[in-house]
Each structure stands twice: as structure tokens, then as C-alpha cells.
Nucleic acid binder design. Structure first.
Lengths: 355, 355
DNA sequence: GTGAAAGCGCTAACAC
DNA sequence: GTGTTAGCGCTTTCAC
């Protein structure tokens, strides 16, 4: 077995307390003692076992991270931000993905709690109605939400204002000359963010005198973007010229699906995404999108959480600023008329195998 | 404080040993006892503290994951695969990113070891020359590499054959009619995978009777893709028609950079990526790429590692099959002549601020 | 089938 | 400045 603190103390000819003090730098040691301890540590290749320490101090110096998925870079980015801050303060991170399942949320939070994490950073399905969060409150475990649109319960959260952002998208699209709007969104029940973005979009359009947009919801876990796009653009009499997608991944997929339908972006349809993931500015056409400060969000949340763990009062809720990044997926301003599809036969868009 | 096993035992009127047995299902308990224990647990809302258990059993049931970055979806995918398998076996995951720095590797491995992970899954800069891996060997900590091209030392690894894949790319491009090749790669010293892909590419081209391709290396941490592309396509007399990129992210960025130069993909230049990340098939043009089975790689590595932890002999090295996915970034076969740039004045491509 | 007791590796009073 | 000691929450012999 690997050497223990006791082994070191024996070799150095001091007590275990002294070795512990040396490791933690908690007390001043005489020069000679320090030297002998250091030598013993080096000789044995001693590595303090943090389990013992954690058991004693009742602090694992680790934080749990719960996100919907690692497959969406937006969450990976936040994790990067968390990691950066956490490791500066000597915290480790345990990451788990729920794949947008609420059952999973409860399960992984339980597992994390069993492992004695000192706190949690999470994005849940719905911050206003979450058994997992209720449990955390009940056990008074410190936590901070990110991305979530937490309107009730005064939950600690670091996020942007999704409603305002959605509204801005509406205004921007109208400004560009659009009059026919649609939304492609992840399942509204699976994401309070998506729901808030939709709400803001509807609200903005209403303020501008427009009806609620067409909307198609797709499953986060296995999104059938093509089918949803075909639905949205099926009716030749009510064909949108502006499409707002609830995240960038959907937007990128949507652009591809539109092209398959013979619709050009941005000439025939303007597409706006949400999140501001890096690839969005790499693809052609460059995606117009609402940029969330994901890394910062993660970093701020981590700071908040660590402060809370250390007994300081949390500052949340914290609303960070978002930005609209203009890409090429929304063209220049101008009059936008619904265009005819190249192949006007609707059956074309509903091949048998997808009906 | 949260209730302990002792609290439960007191309330149930049994010994701590009995409660422990109940929790672990290690012994048969009389029906009455079991019931009383269960009731006590429920009443107190008892949650076993895994720290105590780990200390006693010398097994933390957690595994450390070390990857270059979470910003490249290819690694995020592998983590998903790891997570899936690990959580099935009740293991937790501690993820850390090194951002392609070897110093970081040693640091995070140390930190993970302090935290008593039972084993590690990692992608290191260079599997053949890695202080971090040497340390793991020295302390006989179980580990499995993923993605790495481990040729020496018989390291346990689950990966694909990057050399063969690179060679295949050469053959495929030649088949499509290309005669002028270039490679855009992450720093070869920062990635044994990239180095192996380049090696295979060179080898394949050699077999076909071609010289080694032009190559530009870019930094993983802050890649200046545009500058690299400008370099590669600067010489009008030796302009490549086929570009192999060491990963998909670079390939996607390269396509954008080429377009900025006035070069069309695939009409003027065929681009091949590597990794098979999901967005690659979403972007326009669809990326032709070498698909790695990332999720599977992670899953297999996790299985391997857990087996090793449990004392079984590891099966590695394991070479998984890769696939070439044909996209639109390589056009149809045909004769490919180096094309003139739309703006033939070379100074155009070297604006002052980047010189 | 159940209990008593030792101890995993560490820290933190408390003594001196 | 250093040692002694109790104990964090759990598992596991060894008894009975």
C-alpha cells in the first residue's frame, strides 16, 4: 500500500500531528523538523489521502456539476469555466449529464450527494419545478443554477435573461424586414430556457403587432430537425421567412434542412440561433445568434458556490449580459416575401418513410 | 449534521454492523430487523457517507478523466461514453482538461491521485513520452488511454489506427484525382494523434509516388487558421487542391478561411477532416472526415479500466475500427488543377497586421 | 442472525 | 514548537 502520514511520522521521528501541520502549513515548525519531514515525505513518495482529511474535516473539496448533456458545446464551455475557477481553489469537479431527463436529475444529484460533494452547479429541466432542487434545499446543500430561467422560489442562479433575448430576436428580425416568423425549439417542457426564449419571442412579436409564430418542438435527445422544418415550411400560403431556433445546434441543422428543401439561407429564410457556440461562427453561412457568456457563467457560478460553501452570503440571482452576434444567416435588411419552393409539390416534403 | 449510520442503528435498536449489512445487502437479516432498519433510515433521511466507506474499503469508486479540452466535441463524446458505463457500475467521474499542456497533465493527475481515484482514463500529449503516465506506472495506478497513438511501452490504450487512417485519406484523395496535397494540423508536438495522422498521410502519398505534402501546424490553444491557410495557398505555382485537416474543428474553420480567400470547397479545394464530430455532418458543405467511434472508445475504455480495477487482466491495446464518411467537402472524382485565386495579388493575403 | 470492537488516514483540541 | 489522543463514518473480522 501507499505510505500513510503515520509512516512519514515514524520515518521522520515526529508525531503524526507534526506531519499534518507540515502538509497543511497550519503551524510554524522548527527548521530542522520541517526538513526531516520533507525528507521522509520525499523518500516514501508520500501522497496525502484526501479521503481521510475529508472525513475528518467534513469537506470533500469537490463540487458536483449536473448538465443536460456534454454533446452541446454550450454546456461544455460552462464546465470549462467552472473547472478553471474550481481548480484555482483546489476543488475537484464531478460532472454528470442527465440527457434532459428529470428522473436522471434526481438520480445523479443523489449519487453526487452520497459522494459528499460540498455543493452543486446545475442546469435542470425546469428550475421552478424540480424535485432535485427541492431535495437540495431540504438537505441545505449549497447549489447554484446556470442557464436556467428561475423565476420562482428565489433560487440561486447565474444566467442571462432569456425572455429579453427572445424579444430582441423578434425586434431584430422585424427590423430586417420580416413579417412571417417561425420557431424551431427543443421541447418546451424539457427546457425552461427554451420556453423563456419562446415566450420572449412571442411577446416581442406581439408588441410589433404580429401573431404568435409557428412553432415546432423537437426532442433534445434525438431531434428530427428535417421533419420539423418540413412541417414549418409545408404550407405554401403561410411560409415563414424568419426562423428562430432555440439553440445553435438546431440552427445549424435547420440551415442544412432548409437547403435540402431548396430554400437558401439567408436569401429565402433568415435563421437566428441561440447560445453562441464557437462552431457557429465557423460554419457557412456564419450564424446570427444570441451569445451567452457561457465560460463566464460557469466561472461566476463556481465563485458564487465556493463563496456559499465558505459561509458567505450568495449574490444570486445574477443576470449576465447577452449579446446578439450578427452573422450571415440573417441577410441584409430588405423586404422579405415568402418564397415558393423549387419543387412546389407538397408530397415531395413528406416522403412515405417519415409519415 | 446529516444523520450517520450510528444514528440509524440507535433508532432501530440494532448495532452499526447490522445497519451496514442492511445497506450493503452483504448478509441475510431477519425480516423484522430489516424492517426496523429501513424505517429508521427513512425516518432520518439517512444517506450513507461514501467517504467513510471509501476510507475503510480503500476504494473510492471514482475514476479520473484527463482530456486535452472539453471544447472539442470529440472529447466530450468520449466522456459521454465513459459516463454511461461508469455510472452503470456506480463509478463517479472526475473530469479535468489540460488544454494541451503537458505541465497540466502532471498537475491534474497528481490532484486526481490525491483524491484517491481508483483509476484513470486519459488522452495525453504524447503517450510515448509522458511523465504523468510514468508516475501512474510507478504508483501502479490502473489507467487506460484513449485516442492516443501509443506505439511504445505497451501502454493500455483504446484507440484507432491513426497512421492507417491518414494513409487512407491519401489514397482517397488521389482516387478523386488530386495531385497537390496539403495538411493543416494541430501542433505535432502537442498531439501524437496528429503526428500519426500526418505520418500516415505522408506514407500513403509516398506509396502513390507523391512528395510529402505542404504542412502548416497551428496551436491547439489558439489556432490561427486563416493565417495557416494563407500560408498553404500563398504560392500560386504550388497551390494544393486537397487539404487534409488533423481534426474536424480545424477543417470547418479551414473551409471558412478558404472561402475568404476566394477558394470554393469542394470546387477548388477538397477538404477532409478527422474525428467525425456531429456538427461536421450538419455544416455546409457536409464534411468528409475520418470518423472515430468516440462514444464507444470511451465506453470500452471505461469497461477496460473497471475490469483492471477489479483485478482482471486488461485486454488493451485495443484498436477500434474507423470509418471514412463521405461528405460534400470533397467533390466528385475528376481532374483537379490548382486554381488561380480570384485576387492574384499575394499582398492581399498578407495584410500588414498579420505579418 | 447479530453485536462488539478495531481501524481505514487524517485533523484538531488540548496539553506541555 | 511538538506530542497525545479522540474521533470523522464506515466496514469487517471475530465472537456468540
Amino acid at each position: 500500500m501507499s505510505p500513510t502520514l503515520k509512516d512519514v511520522s515514524r520515518l521522520a521521528g515526529v508525531s503524526t500531528a507534526t506531519v499534518s501541520r507540515f502538509i497543511n502549513g497550519s503551524h510554524q515548525l522548527s527548521e530542522g523538523t520541517a526538513l526531516r519531514v520533507q525528507r521522509a515525505i520525499d523518500e516514501l513518495g508520500f501522497r496525502p489521502n484526501s479521503l481521510g482529511r475529508s472525513l475528518k474535516t467534513a469537506s470533500s473539496k469537490s463540487i458536483g456539476v449536473v448538465i443536460p448533456t456534454l454533446s452541446n458545446p454550450v454546456f461544455a464551455e460552462a464546465v470549462s469555466g467552472i473547472t478553471a475557477v474550481a481548480s484555482d481553489s483546489d476543488y475537484s469537479i464531478m460532472v454528470t449529464a442527465t440527457e434532459y431527463s428529470q428522473d436522471q436529475e434526481l438520480k445523479v444529484v443523489n449519487s453526487l450527494l452520497d459522494r459528499q460533494v460540498d455543493g452543486l452547479i446545475l442546469t435542470v429541466t425546469n428550475a421552478n419545478n424540480s424535485p432535485a432542487l427541492d431535495m437540495l434545499e431540504a438537505e441545505s446543500v449549497p447549489y447554484v443554477l446556470i442557464y436556467n430561467q428561475a423565476t420562482l422560489n428565489n433560487r440561486p442562479v447565474v444566467t442571462i435573461d432569456n425572455v429579453v433575448a427572445g424579444r430582441e430576436v423578434a425586434f431584430r428580425l422585424e427590423e430586417l424586414g420580416h413579417q412571417h416568423f417561425a420557431m424551431l425549439s427543443g421541447n418546451l417542457h424539457s427546457s425552461d430556457r427554451a420556453a423563456a426564449r419562446y415566450q420572449g419571442f412571442v411577446q416581442g412579436l406581439a408588441e410589433l403587432g404580429f401573431d404568435a409564430p409557428l412553432i415546432q418542438e423537437i426532442e433534445f435527445s434525438q431531434p428530427n430537425t428535417s421533419a420539423a422544418i418540413r412541417e414549418l415550411f409545408a404550407d405554401p400560403l403561410q411560409r415563414p421567412t424568419a426562423l428562430f431556433c432555440s439553440n445553435d445546434l438546431f440552427a445549424i441543422a435547420a440551415i442544412g434542412a432548409l437547403r435540402e428543401l431548396g430554400l437558401k439561407v439567408p436569401e429565402d429564410v433568415s435563421v437566428v440561433g441561440f447560445d453562441g457556440i464557437t462552431v457557429g461562427s465557423l460554419v457557412q453561412p456564419k450564424l446570427t445568434t444570441v451569445v451567452q457568456p457561457s465560460t463566464e457563467m460557469g466561472a461566476v457560478a463556481a465563485k458564487e458556490l465556493i463563496n456559499t460553501i465558505c459561509g458567505e452570503a450568495p449574490q444570486s440571482p445574477l443576470v449576465l449580459p447577452h449579446k446578439v452576434r450578427e452573422g450571415e444567416s440573417t441577410g441584409p435588411a430588405g423586404k422579405h416575401e415568402p418564397v415558393a419552393l423549387q419543387e412546389p409539390n407538397p408530397t415531395k416534403f413528406f416522403p412515405k418513410e417519415t409519415l
